[in-house]
Design a protein around this nucleic acid. Structure first.
Length: 467
DNA sequence: GGAACTCGCCAC
DNA sequence: AAACGTGGCGAGTTCC
């Protein structure tokens, strides 16, 4: 599989992008070394305490007896051997090549104090070895200078390395706090992050032009796609986003159904993920389970009232919603996917609107996803290049420092903050649409900022802007 | 002692 | 018929 620019425009984008990223690389990110070293020490102690506690478990005694000097808590091979061969636990999950899995899900399923403790150790070890350690190693005179690569991803997205700034923890609050507090602005400055809202859904629409989807994107005040799907899935007449339980259902729908469907997932997986989200304990739905919705009833009770009493019935229902999604709600999107894939089978390549060709052996999901994902990133790349040029042109001291696919982070001088925000609006929302006139949906940016001398963990939402 | 592999897990 | 897209990286393991 190969991706190449096929228009001069595509080539130019990468050329300018490489220069821009190399300047961001030179700018570097200010790092709180004291915080890093303190946390590293703290976790070392934490891990050592957990190790000691683990020694008392029967499983570890057997493990150590068998592996002697080679024993390691980090060895999945050893762990798998002890649990499933020595102790004869029943595996619930298997790896790609068919070995019993010892990932988080598999270990949690064993419900033992030993595996719970081991998972905790593994979590701290991940933070320590993957994040703290590499940040400490890469820090030079108080700064890291991470690489942002344009030559590696099949989709012509970017990647990051030494260290990879694109996968720093955030979803887990504890890990996020430990790591992101180390990312700080230059003295007397603040960090400002800006990201494009829903950019992949929008770039998809630029290809398929489904009228229903265009409607959602053009009327964000009146139409809410995720809420609409939540209503279908949970058999609700409408959804009240001010009700916290119902808002949870909307979020679960977005993460367990709508987005996975766009990436090419299917109803059976969706249903399984929903079960986790809703925290349903067994196959049979119980009256007292799940988030509480209006009139103080649980979603468990509500589903039972609507005739969905167990997992199998729920799966069948999701299958129906999936069918409705692609055949009734988004038939034009659906037809585009088929047509686009057939064209690939005929030509053996597909093009990206920003001026690239994807060619070679690809699966159906790849053929559909690459042009969408690539173009979404190219929107950000174009903005990065333009912003960087204008900051230099206006002789501003504010610097772009890194980028995460649909987000740009800058180190901002407080006196320049308002000007920088204006630049963001102008470039990311207005100028990009002029540059690529095929963008016929509104663009939206969301801006977060830290305090002056703050950090990347404590970011506060400051502005959204839609055109 | 390094290359290539597996597995697990972090991000968008 | 098939079944979630893109990456980086650490630790352990195996092979040469």
């Amino acid at each position: 599989m190969q991706v190449v620019p096929y228009k001069k425009e595509g080539y130019q984008l990468l050329h300018d992008g490489a220069i821009c990223f190399s300047e961001m690389h030179q700018h570097g990110i200010h790092i709180d070394s004291k915080h890093l070293k303190g946390e590293y020490k703290r976790l070392k102690k934490e891990i050592s305490n957990l190790s000691k506690l683990l020694e008392s478990h029967e499983e570890v005694k057997i493990w150590k007896r068998k592996y002697k000097d080679n024993f390691s808590f980090e060895s999945d091979v050893q762990l798998s051997d002890i649990l499933f061969k020595e102790l004869h636990y029943e595996p619930t999950k298997f790896t790609k090549i068919g070995n019993p899995s010892v990932d988080k899900e598999a270990l949690s399923a064993l419900h033992s104090s030993f595996t719970d403790r081991l998972l905790k150790l593994r979590f701290y070890s991940k933070i320590q070895n993957t994040y703290l350690k590499s940040l400490i190693e890469e820090t030079c005179n108080g700064y890291i200078h991470p690489f942002l690569n344009l030559q590696t991803a099949r989709t012509y997205r970017s990647s990051g390395s030494f260290p990879n700034v694109q996968n720093q923890p955030i979803r887990d609050a504890e890990a996020g706090e430990i790591i992101r507090k180390a990312f700080i602005p230059r003295e007397g400055r603040l960090l400002v992050g800006v990201d494009y809202g829903g950019i992949e859904v929008k770039t998809a629409a630029l290809y398929h032009q489904d009228p229903t989807m265009l409607g959602y994107l053009r009327n964000p005040e009146e139409a809410d796609m995720h809420a609409d799907f939540a209503c279908l899935i949970f058999k609700l007449d409408d959804l009240d986003t001010n009700n916290s339980g119902e808002n949870k259902l909307r979020k679960a729908t977005k993460n367990s159904f709508t987005f996975p469907q766009f990436y090419g997932d299917y109803y059976k997986n969706n249903a399984t993920v929903f079960w986790e989200w809703l925290q349903f304990s067994g196959k049979k739905i119980k009256r007292n389970e799940g988030p509480v919705i209006r009139n103080d009833i649980t979603i468990g009770q509500h589903l039972i009232n609507k005739g969905i009493k167990n997992f199998d019935q729920f799966v069948k229902h999701i299958k129906k919603v999936e069918h409705d999604m692609w055949n009734k709600r988004f038939p034009v999107y659906s037809k585009w996917k088929d047509k686009h894939y057939k064209e690939y089978l005929k030509n053996r390549f597909v093009t990206i609107l920003s001026g690239f060709v994807c060619q070679g052996a690809m699966g159906k999901n790849d053929v559909i996803n690459y042009p969408i994902q690539g173009l979404a990133f190219h929107c950000l790349l174009w903005s990065c290049i333009r912003l960087n040029k204008l900051l230099k042109k206006y002789k501003m001291k504010t610097k772009l420092i890194f980028q995460i696919h649909d987000e740009i982070v800058a180190d901002v001088v407080p006196e320049e903050l308002d000007d920088y925000l204006e630049l963001l609006k102008q470039v990311m929302v207005e100028d990009l649409k002029t540059h690529w006139d095929f963008i016929n949906v509104p663009l939206e940016i969301e801006v977060k900022k830290s305090e002056v001398d703050g950090n990347w963990f404590n970011m506060e939402k400051t502005m959204t802007y839609i055109n």
